[in-house]
């Protein structure tokens, strides 16, 4: 009988703890995340829909959107290729220095973005290692679009690789070997066997990579030079507008980034669900 009482007591206590924890979590998320998110939209539409759209009818804002999109269009495909190569090397081969490579891939996560930006200034800036040569040859990297792209690539490098490494390690390379033995070429094997097996993880990595590429502030801020209409990305433009007390425009541009974030979350959720289903199938198979 005693054990019965005990378990009852434990259960009533756990209900209290359970709802306490849920309440705390919801309160925290509401105050810290949901309210700010709603504020962005409220502030953006404070002076009406017209004012909201007027904010985009600005040359500098449009230039910032354009530069952001171009940066993402260069950085994401490059990181896609790098990411697939790196995860392939790590997952399918064993070689000397593999753990060093895995650690290196995580470096951009570990280093403050500001420092990532400074590294490029130190390398390519006027006083930097290659600065002299670049000036002589009339190539501008820092305070220009190439610097922004470089900094963005650096910061967003880990996303694709981090997604793919565990997935590819789990799958091993039996299927690839089977395809090669059946006479498929390396390219056929990659397209018909490898890619279908990693597609959800790959897409998920690309979406996260894209979100970060468009939203990156710190590293880009250091190398940008903040030349309006030339080297400003959306996050940088938001800061400038805000500092100019142009709140509606600042929040209006922010809504674009917020929508991008929400879209990313929805996609991420659905892809995670699909990837999980695929992994379950894989497990079932073993």
């Amino acid at each position: 009988m005693k054990t019965f009482n005990n378990s009852n007591g434990a259960q009533s206590e756990s209900t209290l703890v359970k709802y306490g924890l849920i309440f705390t979590a919801i309160c925290f998320l509401t105050i810290m995340l949901l309210v700010p998110l709603i504020t962005i939209f409220i502030e953006a539409f404070r002076k009406g829909i017209e004012a909201y759209f007027l904010a985009f009818n600005d040359q500098y804002v449009l230039q910032a959107v354009k530069l952001t999109v171009i940066t993402a269009l260069i950085a994401v495909p490059l990181n896609l290729v790098f990411g697939v190569c790196a995860s392939w090397a790590i997952a399918k081969y064993s070689f000397f220095g593999k753990s060093v490579l895995i650690t290196l891939i995580d470096l951009p996560f570990a280093v403050s973005p500001v420092i990532s930006g400074f590294v490029y200034v130190l390398l390519f800036g006027a006083q930097g290692w290659f600065g002299h040569w670049l000036i002589e040859n009339d190539v501008q990297i820092i305070f220009a679009a190439p610097g922004i792209v470089l900094a963005t690539i650096f910061v967003t490098f880990p996303f694709v690789a981090r997604e793919l490494i565990p997935l590819m390690q789990e799958q091993g390379n039996d299927e690839e070997q089977a395809a090669l033995l059946l006479g498929a070429s390396g390219f056929q094997t990659f397209m018909k066997v490898t890619i279908p097996n990693i597609k959800w993880g790959l897409l998920y990595g690309v979406i996260l990579c894209n979100a970060r590429a468009m939203g990156e502030f710190g590293a880009v801020s250091v190398v940008s030079g903040h030349i309006q209409g030339v080297t400003n990305t959306m996050p940088l433009q938001v800061e400038i507008l805000y500092n100019e007390y142009n709140f509606v425009a600042a929040f209006a541009v922010s809504t674009l980034l917020a929508i991008l974030a929400l879209l990313t979350l929805v996609l991420k959720y659905s892809l995670e669900w699909k990837a999980k289903k695929q992994l379950e199938k894989l497990k079932e198979e073993e």
Binding site: D174, E175, Q177, A178, A179, L180, L181, L182, G183, A184, S185, K192, V193, P196, N197, Q278, K281, L282, E285, E286
Partner: peptide, 19 residues
């Protein structure tokens, strides 16, 4: 090249193409 050796290979864990 392994594709030209006229070999049929069967793996312990089947290695069927999952998709």
């Amino acid at each position: 090249p392994i594709g030209d050796r006229d070999i049929g290979f069967v793996f312990q864990h089947y290695a069927l193409f999952k998709h």
